[in-house]
């Protein structure tokens, strides 16, 4: 059951997404209309915490649970970050949910969100099918 620890981490993350109301369509609408600081506070403080933690892991050369050094891979720039980013942004403004909240919302009992999730899987599949013809 080497994957059980990831299930537990996921449960904690799902709880945080719901209790912080990051999964709420209303909160996302407020964010994109600059009507509330809440989402900026959540994302901003999450990034600062992550940065500090990653800095510490690198600085102190902390190993993972299995004793391997933690490795990082540099992301390469591609036009996909611009075109794909804009398309995802348009979708996020409609659904009020990025991929994490899609899973969390289905769990909270908003079962119709399973259709949204299936549609996101379809979108990913279509991207995979046509990616050779897209600018990158």
């Amino acid at each position: 059951m080497k994957n059980l620890k990831y299930l537990l981490a996921g449960i904690a993350f799902g709880l945080l997404l719901v209790k912080s109301e990051v999964v709420s369509w209303f909160r996302i609408q407020e964010m994109f209309r600059f009507q509330s600081f809440h989402m900026y506070g959540v994302i901003g403080s999450a990034v600062l915490t992550g940065m500090l933690a990653v800095w510490l892991i690198r600085k102190m050369n902390i190993k993972d649970l299995e004793g391997r050094p933690v490795s990082f891979r540099k992301k390469e720039f591609s036009k996909g970050q611009v075109y794909g980013g804009l398309l995802f942004g348009l979708g996020w403004g409609m659904t009020g949910a990025c991929p994490g909240p899609l899973f969390a919302l289905v769990g909270t009992g908003a079962t119709v969100i399973a259709v949204m999730l299936a549609s996101a899987v379809a979108g990913t599949w279509v991207y995979g099918r046509v990616r050779d013809r897209l600018p990158h």
Partner: peptide, 24 residues
């Protein structure tokens, strides 16, 4: 639900990540 979900799936893969993979 349907078009919005599709754009989330298509856009995140095209961008190589979403709010968690890129933004955080």
């Amino acid at each position: 639900i349907v078009l919005g979900g599709f754009l989330v799936g298509f856009g995140t893969r095209y961008a190589g990540g979403c709010t968690s993979g890129h933004s955080i």
